[in-house]
Design a binder for these strands. Structure first.
Lengths: 246, 246
DNA sequence: TGCCTTAATATGTATATACATAATAATTGC
DNA sequence: GCAATTATTATGTATATACATATTAAGGCA
């Protein structure tokens, strides 16, 4: 979550929010360099004329956000940032397309229900074989293909998917409606379009493409593996780093 | 920050941490779907046999982490996840190369100090012209070029860079030592290698490459713009989504 | 001067209490 | 039955107090 104070009517002006904001501003502006000792809690209670618990609340939040580190008896110190962690927002493809001011269209290319094989087990990180659904889809921006989707759904985790044709709804939003709080790992790389991809995206064989592979876990088991392929010129991912994130 | 309880000796077993962990587990497992009302604070005080402030502390953290939303008089409700926000960790290239079990080597290709032009103003989002430093570098993994770096440093923000040759130290780690808490925006896409890139990375003209462009801000002004280009087969970015992040 | 013991201190966690406030529910009057 | 008013209630924020505990500083002694 963001620690930076915003014009949020809910917390604007509350004392602990002011303390939190003042201190994070000093850190992020460089006024307090890594290693600098933040004033002791009792010093801050005098400075802000408040209780120790109010100061403690603000400092605890800064610690959780990763800006400071707290050491008993020693005090609180500005941290050196860990590896920069940029937040990459993953949107439903429809949202991405419509943000470009284009009309979105979805097309199911193929759908097969079968038993998982060795490659599937590897993609989904499954321990044992079971029923899976494979889907191949295209997402259009205006008249142009925008993304090629190749997906594997673990039917043990989402049995309902067996009864869904995915003719009119893309699997991504359908799944997020059923497994809303899931974990995911994304792998992002560049590839040269193979013949299948070239045909699906209407680009030249060997053209550069951006590939985002995502594996998703629901309640302790894998739900889906999906590979999105975008033509190089049609997609840029944006990730932002704000140092207040954990 | 992560809300999920870990085997952290610092907080393991503390009551508010247990409450936080229990509730986030129910949400992430799907036991409590979006829209579900979390028990009222007074109900949780009875359930955990503790004070309202302890419960409030845990619920406030869950709210800040984005898992629940709090409404006065109404209660707390499980939220539908916003767009999934995957955390993309950006490491120093040396760390990436060494994680591959390869030897890292850095080479400065070119360095120029000059006044910013129109393209620079655009890249750095500067309002007015000033002195800049341009750098072209290569990063090697073993004997192979791993990344091609083209950088622009705003000397108004980091005047010290004017006195640094960057012969033995890459600009990235040098800058993070001086502007530790900065904000950044990354743009990730696929491109076909142009002649400069092909030569720098020792790949074929037109080969697919992964490009990560990063613009960094220090204290309210831009610090640097950098474009890293990686050969397609040498680099995969990994981003992880854990729903406890804001 | 160095080591051991004791005292002091800053943070960690929790509870009790208080008041504020937004929102919901109940009551009253027409 | 509906609107206005009042009461109730759940969260928001803060303070006071207490005890726990890890770490640092001070003192004594050999």
């Amino acid at each position: 979550m963001s620690v930076a104070a915003t014009a949020d009517p809910e917390v604007a002006g509350s004392l602990h929010a002011r303390i939190l904001s003042d201190i994070s501003e000093k850190i992020m502006s460089g006024a307090w360099a890594p290693g600098h000792r933040v004033p002791f809690e009792h010093e801050l209670t005098e400075q802000y004329n408040c209780s120790r618990m109010t100061v403690n609340k603000a400092l605890s939040q800064l610690a959780k956000a990763g800006l400071i580190e707290r050491r008993r008896r020693s005090g609180s110190f500005v941290r050196r940032p860990r590896s920069q962690a940029a937040v990459l927002e993953i949107h439903d493809i429809r949202v991405e397309v419509e943000a470009l001011g284009l009309a979105y269209r979805y097309e199911r290319v193929a759908r097969h229900r079968r038993r998982s094989n060795g490659a599937d087990l590897s993609l989904l990180e499954l321990g044992q074989a079971g029923p899976v659904l494979t889907l191949e889809c295209r997402h259009f921006a205006g008249e142009r293909p925008f993304a090629h989707e190749q997906r594997l759904i673990n039917l043990a985790a989402v049995p309902e998917a067996a009864g869904e044709e995915f003719l009119d709804i893309a699997p991504g939003p359908w799944l997020i409606g059923r497994v809303p709080w899931s974990e995911a790992e994304h792998r992002i790389r560049a590839v040269a379009a193979d013949s299948r991809t070239a045909q699906a995206l209407d680009i030249e064989l060997g053209a550069p493409c951006l590939v985002v592979e995502r594996r998703t876990w629901g309640a302790e088991r894998p739900v889906t593996h999906v590979r999105f392929t975008y033509a190089a010129e049609s997609h840029t991912l944006v990730a932002r780093f704000r140092p207040s994130q954990g």
